[in-house]
Nucleic acid binder design. Sequence first.
DNA 1: CTGCCCATGTAAATGGTTACATGATTGA
DNA 2: TCAATCATGTAACCATTTACATGGGCAG
Lengths: 192, 192
Amino acid sequence: LSLKHAILGFLNMKPFSGYDLWKLFNGSVNNYWSATHTQIYKALSELAEEKMVEVEVIQQESSPNKKVYHLVGLGKEELITWLKTPLELAPVRDRFLVQFSFSGVLDDKDIIHNIESYIEKIEEKLNNLRSGHYTDYLKFARSKREKFLWENTLKHGILSYENELGWLRECLSGYKMLFIDSDIKTNRIRKA
Amino acid sequence: LSLKHAILGFLNMKPFSGYDLWKLFNGSVNNYWSATHTQIYKALSELAEEKMVEVEVIQQESSPNKKVYHLVGLGKEELITWLKTPLELAPVRDRFLVQFSFSGVLDDKDIIHNIESYIEKIEEKLNNLRSGHYTDYLKFARSKREKFLWENTLKHGILSYENELGWLRECLSGYKMLFIDSDIKTNRIRKA
DNA sequence: CTGCCCATGTAAATGGTTACATGATTGA
DNA sequence: TCAATCATGTAACCATTTACATGGGCAG
């Protein structure tokens, strides 16, 4: 139900069209909740059926018509109730760890390649997060409190990828030290 | 597709029944991939249809009959191919951050309550991870390499919850400093 | 004239949760 | 006698992904 609540959260700031929301979910929000346009349009029409939001159709000449959604009483109540409800820890589903933990049957070079390739992707992601083009929207914050929350949401992304990166690098150097360098040593001894 | 690959990964160690796998997914694996028994039984019958695994029915008197699944050639190939394929970063979906980032419309006490309640749940989870009853299965590792991978998978869980906890505590103290203490100060000044 | 932006959707498939269903054995 | 463990599944639903579909305007 988080997608619907995220949408209600945005509509609580100001009215948006499905397309607007899709752009939001492709921007900074993508760092903590991802959604496709298909999902968003469907959620919006369901929210309209449930009387949480109201539609306003805007006629346009130079581009297709727009449906702008407004948050109404019932939707606002639902949003506030949800925001006040403490959440349980989410079930974890980490594909990389599944792969990693079963990789004992592979060769050293394959294991190392998987780790290095994942490190590269995380570094790229981190560069992207740190580049500062996610900090633009902070100026739309309606209060100091909101700005604080948004800044820390962004920081959360950076911290968790940094943490991930730290773990990966430790794994990589640990792996090499235990299974590669010692092989070389063993080979040297054998040769000597 | 990760659930099926995880199952293939386990069957590559030794044959298991659906029930056995379910217990595994409720144990240490639950820390990086969660699955219900419904899902597991369904995946197993699909894997059997796809000729990845073979079923052996074991007649039992004192309890219901068992279906033990064995990994066969095609399944093993599929497993190895998947293990060698570098993965993309998974899309992030963090309910807590959705709630957190839209909480600017709540009262201080509600925001603080949500953070504190999440902190408690993470502390509990961390105690559980650190308690050591997930380290038992390490003795089943078939090689030093496998033991290394399993230990680091476990460590990943601990590190990421510690990281989460650090962020939450920073948020909480930052929030109080900025929005609570200064209120008290302001009130004091007003009173004076 | 090619490709991107605007703007909306439908349909099919896959993945995951929740509720329902059965039935014997064993230990508190 | 009550609850847990063993052992398997079906059915309905909700969430997510991917492919298909349309069509004008505008910039390089």
